[in-house]
Simulated scan of single mutants.
Amino acid sequence: MTKCHIAYLACTAALAGVGLGAAPPAAHPVTHVVHPGQSIQKAVDAAAPGDTVLVRPGTYRESVTVHTDRVTLRGTSPRTVLRPAAVTGKKAGTCAADGNGVCVTGTKDRKVKGVTVASLTVSGFTRNGVYATATDGLTVRDVTAEKNGVWGIAAEASVRTVFRGNTARDNGDAGLFLANSVKEEQGATETKGTLVKGNRLEGNRIGVTVRRLRDLTVARNRMTGNCAAVFVVGDENKPKAGHVTVRDNRITRNNKSCPKTARLDALQGSGIVLTGAEDSVVTRNTITDNVGSSPLSGGIVLFKSFVGTTSERNRISDNVLHGNSPADLVVTDTGKGNTFERNSCKASRPAGLC
């Protein structure tokens, strides 16, 4: 090859490189660090998809809303604390004005995807510590949600949610709450594999509420000191709630007393309650010393829903139950196809289920 040819090829390659390399390199994820006295919301607003907002230890008097896909909002420990600020001048419908701590908010037409909230404390909000709506792939992990007026950590109209390793205590209603919709009457929706795993739930009205959902797992959680540990709730709408797996949980002494509400009878001493649910599995749970005199009291309870919907084809198997009152297994539901197999227990209502 002559020098002329070599020069020609080099020039051609350089020109091709100019054409192919015109696009700018992809931006790298950025970590936005927030120190006490600075605004978390400003850092979240500045974050692009893939970025992390890292909040240093301290107390932050604000509420935070995340709208951007794949943003991680992360504290450094439970000593990163969000508490309510004054809401004077806050627009109605905002996270702060609605009494929430952290909001992850999509829309009916566009779910916000891949957001993570981790390693912080949300405390003292009049409604919810963490509240998510219209999300896909939300993860909430290692969050402490305490003394919030309604729910500790909640998600509605969301799919592929993961609640893992959180502590929810002393919240006004459920420590963890998952539902299809809190405002509309409609049939149960598919969660596409939502997972509630490894959480600690103490002193709430209900530890975990799963309302009008399907395809969801509640596993390896510890629940004590609530009025009730787990509620799987359906109603008269179609499709029914169901295909929920409740497994490997430790549920003990959920004997706090909670008064009757417009939607639910008084609660005390309820382990796992299924009402209006179908095709669900309750297995390998350890359920002990849950004692009360409510119609919903007992270790594992199948209860006909207050709108008359029965629970059907649920499998209750391989659970260890003792010290629950009025019984370890309680069935007041007339639904068909529910089965009880290999449970270690002493007393049931009606007799013969153990």
Rank of each mutant, 00 (worst) to 15 (best):
residue 113 K to R: 15
residue 151 W to F: 13
residue 180 N to I: 04
residue 187 G to N: 10
residue 110 R to L: 08
residue 143 V to Y: 00
residue 139 T to Q: 10
residue 136 D to S: 08
residue 169 R to G: 01
residue 123 S to Y: 02
residue 185 E to N: 09
residue 139 T to D: 08
residue 102 V to W: 00
residue 167 T to Y: 11
residue 96 A to K: 03
residue 113 K to D: 14
residue 148 N to Y: 09
residue 147 K to I: 10
residue 96 A to C: 03
residue 127 R to W: 02
residue 121 T to P: 07
residue 181 S to A: 10
residue 142 D to Q: 06
residue 127 R to D: 11
residue 120 L to V: 06
residue 163 F to E: 15
residue 163 F to R: 11
residue 176 L to C: 10
residue 149 G to P: 05
residue 155 A to C: 09
residue 145 A to N: 01
residue 138 L to M: 12
residue 166 N to W: 08
residue 169 R to L: 06
residue 183 K to W: 10
residue 122 V to G: 07
residue 100 N to M: 05
residue 161 T to L: 14
residue 100 N to S: 00
residue 128 N to V: 03
residue 162 V to L: 15
residue 157 A to P: 02
residue 106 G to Y: 03
residue 180 N to W: 04
residue 147 K to S: 12
residue 104 V to G: 03
residue 178 L to V: 14
residue 132 A to V: 07
residue 162 V to W: 12
residue 99 G to D: 04
residue 138 L to A: 11
residue 167 T to H: 10
residue 130 V to L: 05
residue 129 G to P: 06
residue 103 C to S: 01
residue 118 A to T: 09
residue 104 V to L: 03
residue 102 V to I: 07
residue 185 E to K: 11
residue 187 G to E: 11
residue 178 L to M: 15
residue 127 R to P: 03
residue 132 A to P: 03
residue 155 A to H: 12
residue 118 A to P: 01
residue 106 G to H: 00
residue 185 E to L: 11
residue 118 A to S: 06
residue 111 K to T: 12
residue 139 T to C: 08
residue 168 A to F: 06
residue 159 V to I: 15
residue 141 R to C: 05
residue 126 T to N: 04
residue 136 D to W: 12
residue 126 T to G: 01
residue 182 V to H: 10
residue 180 N to T: 08
residue 172 G to Q: 05
residue 117 V to S: 01
residue 119 S to T: 10
residue 161 T to Y: 14
residue 162 V to G: 07
residue 122 V to L: 00
residue 141 R to F: 02
residue 140 V to M: 12
residue 148 N to E: 06
residue 131 Y to N: 01
residue 158 S to W: 08
residue 177 F to S: 15
